[in-house]
C-alpha cells in the first residue's frame, strides 16, 4: 500500500458518499445520470466477486463492501425512492455502446480466460467509460450543481492518483498491470476537460457552465 493509493481510495470513497448524501439530503437526483450509476454498480459487483474467494486485507474487504453497498443504494434512490426527480430527458446516453465493447474487449484482451478474470477485466474496461453518461448529461444540460462537480472532481482524482500508485509500484515493487494502467489512463483522460473547467471555474466560486 502507498500514499497515492490510500488518497486515491479515500477520494473515491468521498465521491460516492458525496453523491449519496446529495441525493438523500436534497431528496432529488436532478442532474445525476442514473445510467452512470448503474454502470458503476455493475463495475463494483463484477470486480469484487473475489470477496468470496480471496482475502487480501481487512481494509480491502471493508472498502469493497462499502463500494458495492453505496453504489446499489445510490441506484435505489435514483430509480426507486426519488424516481420522480430523475431527469429521463437528459440522461439519454446509450450505455449498450459502452457495455458491448467492454464485454468484447474483456473476452479478447485479458490476463487469464477464467470466469472471475474475465469479469474483472470487463469491470476495468467498463469503469474507464462509466462516467460518460454523466459527462454527456452535464454537457446536455449545459451546467452542473457545484456539489455534482465536487463529486466528479473526487471521482476523477481517484483514478488519476491510481496512475501515480502504478508508477510507484512499478518503480518500487516491480509490479504492474497493463490492463488496469491503460484503462486508468483512458478513464483519467476523459475527465481532463472537466478538471480544467472545475479548476478555472468552480474553485473560483462560479457555477460549472459548459459552453452549450
Amino acid at each position: 500500500m502507498n500514499i497515492f493509493r490510500i488518497i486515491g481510495d479515500l477520494s473515491h470513497l468521498l465521491a460516492i458518499i458525496i453523491l449519496l448524501r446529495k441525493i438523500w439530503k436534497t431528496r432529488s437526483c436532478a442532474g445525476i445520470s442514473g445510467k452512470s450509476q448503474i454502470l458503476f454498480a455493475l463495475v463494483y459487483t463484477t470486480r469484487y466477486l473475489d470477496l468470496v474467494t480471496t482475502y487480501v486485507s481487512l481494509y480491502n474487504t471493508v472498502m469493497k463492501i462499502i463500494f458495492i453497498a453505496v453504489s446499489i443504494a445510490t441506484c435505489y434512490l435514483i430509480y426507486m425512492k426519488f424516481k420522480a426527480t430523475y431527469d429521463h430527458n437528459h440522461d439519454t446516453f446509450r450505455i449498450e455502446f459502452l457495455l458491448a465493447p467492454a464485454v468484447i474487449l474483456a473476452l479478447l484482451i485479458n490476463h487469464d480466460f477464467t470466469f472471475l478474470e474475465i469479469l474483472w477485466t470487463f469491470s476495468i474496461y467498463l469503469e474507464s467509460v462509466a462516467i460518460l453518461p454523466q459527462l454527456f448529461m452535464v454537457s446536455k444540460t449545459g451546467e452542473a450543481e457545484s456539489i455534482t462537480s465536487h463529486y466528479l472532481f473526487a471521482l476523477g482524482s481517484y483514478r488519476a492518483l491510481y496512475i501515480l500508485n502504478w508508477i510507484y509500484r512499478y518503480h518500487n515493487e516491480e509490479i504492474y498491470d497493463l490492463i488496469a494502467i491503460v484503462a486508468g489512463i483512458v478513464q483519467t483522460a476523459l475527465y481532463c476537460d472537466f478538471f480544467y473547467l472545475y479548476i478555472t471555474k468552480v474553485l473560483r466560486g462560479k457555477k460549472l457552465q459548459l459552453p452549450a
Binding site: D9, K64, H111, Y162, N165, A180
Partner: peptide
C-alpha cells in the same frame, strides 16, 4: 497479456 500481480487493488 502478462501481469505480475494478483488483484490486490480496489
Amino acid at each position: 497479456i502478462e501481469k505480475s500481480s494478483t488483484h490486490d487493488e480496489l
